[in-house]
Design a protein around this nucleic acid. Structure first.
Lengths: 238, 238
DNA sequence: ACCGGGACACTAGTATACAAGATAGCGCCG
DNA sequence: CGGCGCTATCTTGTATACTAGTGTCCCGGT
């Protein structure tokens, strides 16, 4: 067995997956599955049956398998040969590692971004913050996360660190599920304030202050782990 | 076309791949291909024909495709649908990014490692250094790189940063080819000295000094790019 | 001799069939 | 009634056949 998975045998949702954009079928399946997992539309521990998915999507097993292989490389799916594939559990140790990677990389990136910071970057960042505020008011949580990613992306673009951004996104794919499951809605306005304070520091040319504020901002992600709701504890490991 | 690849039409080596360890065939193909690419037994730009590989290895296309998908995710192979798959060129911009990621992550890791540093770690590190010296004397370059990886792994183990190590390894898979192609043999003894100086600083409890020395060590990788041999320049992009 | 067109030999993507292992449930036996 | 063992049915891994697109090369016409 693979220990005690959350929703093992039961198949609560028939995977409301829809293939969207063009490109190869394999890519479409990959995007759909990845989105469903990161946004926790499918919960950690859920069974991923190749047969069920290809029946549900009307495609053959080949592109589905290809997508699963890629998701397994991303650490989002665990494959147990001859037993089954399951959405990877949220391991607290892995979350801590992802947080470490993201904090270290993003702080270094923002330091480089400070050197090339200009009015356009500032305007883009404040636009992203405004979009986050709108999403909060409208209760559109996915739009909030999307704008959050846009906001953090600006630093990498300003610094020209495309590769670092790719690494950050990869680490974030683990953190994303954590945020959506355990994120406290009361903290969202605080997030906005912290975002704005980082931009304020950059606009003022104080790179050290910006880096320090960003580091604190990312670290605060872990404050909400102390009061972890009991009914969600079964979704994490360790 | 895919621009000017180095060894496009020609197939200079019949892929002296041999499947070694147990596990699924797909994993064996993945390991063999990855090793061949990272150790530049197959050069950047070389054509990776699924048919040729599965003929060469005596397996079907399915596991070969699976391995190629994973290698494409790793950024080691570029797949052009209906045209072909090719060993990814060494993009100087990507090398710079990998260097950035590795430096930032590893410096942060070594700072954490300093807190938990003990005699065992020191002994392991010095053993790895000794192995590197032996490899240099014996002219076994692959053994040198293996010991180098072991050496750098020690910091992550001491700090308990498994995830960060995984990210470092991933960034290193790009750097590995660069090192093997453009590495200057005259610098190898200097590498040993730099490694030893980092451990000296850690043993002395001076974490800041260790971090600074490690940062310089990783940065020096780029000093050899200035005098890039002309006959190898065709293997890189940009 | 040069230029154009079509057959051909490739490529990767997809679909389907088969193989091997693991599990759960049921029936038989003690 | 309890425990052992078989079977039916799942799982993923592998092999093979087919599709559609692309580039090349040769041959024929100009």
């Amino acid at each position: 067995m693979h220990s005690e998975s959350a929703t093992d045998g039961d198949a609560p949702l028939d995977m409301t997956l829809r293939l969207e954009r063009g490109g190869t079928v394999s890519d479409q399946v990959y995007d759909a599955l990845r989105h469903a997992i990161v946004t926790v539309r499918v919960l950690p521990g859920a069974s991923i049956s190749e047969n069920r998915i290809c029946r549900s999507l009307g495609v053959s097993r080949t592109p589905v398998r290809s997508a699963i292989v890629r998701l397994a490389e991303d650490g989002l799916i665990d494959v147990y040969p001859q037993k089954g594939s399951f959405v990877a559990p949220i391991r607290l140790a892995a979350i801590a590692e992802s947080r470490f990677i993201r904090r270290v990389l993003e702080v270094a990136v923002v330091r480089d971004a400070g050197a090339a910071w200009n009015a356009t970057h500032s305007a883009d960042a404040r636009a992203a913050i405004a979009e986050q505020a709108r999403a909060i008011a409208a209760g559109e949580s996915e739009a909030f996360f999307r704008a959050d990613e846009q906001f953090h992306h600006i630093f990498s673009r300003a610094a020209g660190h495309d590769g670092a951004w790719a690494a950050i996104v990869q680490a974030n794919s683990r953190l994303g599920r954590f945020h959506r499951l355990f994120g406290n809605k009361d903290r969202l306005p605080v997030v906005l304030q912290e975002h704005a304070s980082v931009i304020d520091a950059l606009d003022a040319g104080d790179v050290d202050l910006a880096a320090h504020r960003l580091e604190d901002h990312i670290d605060k992600v872990f404050t909400l782990i102390d009061h972890l709701p009991e009914d969600l504890r079964r979704l994490v490991e360790d």
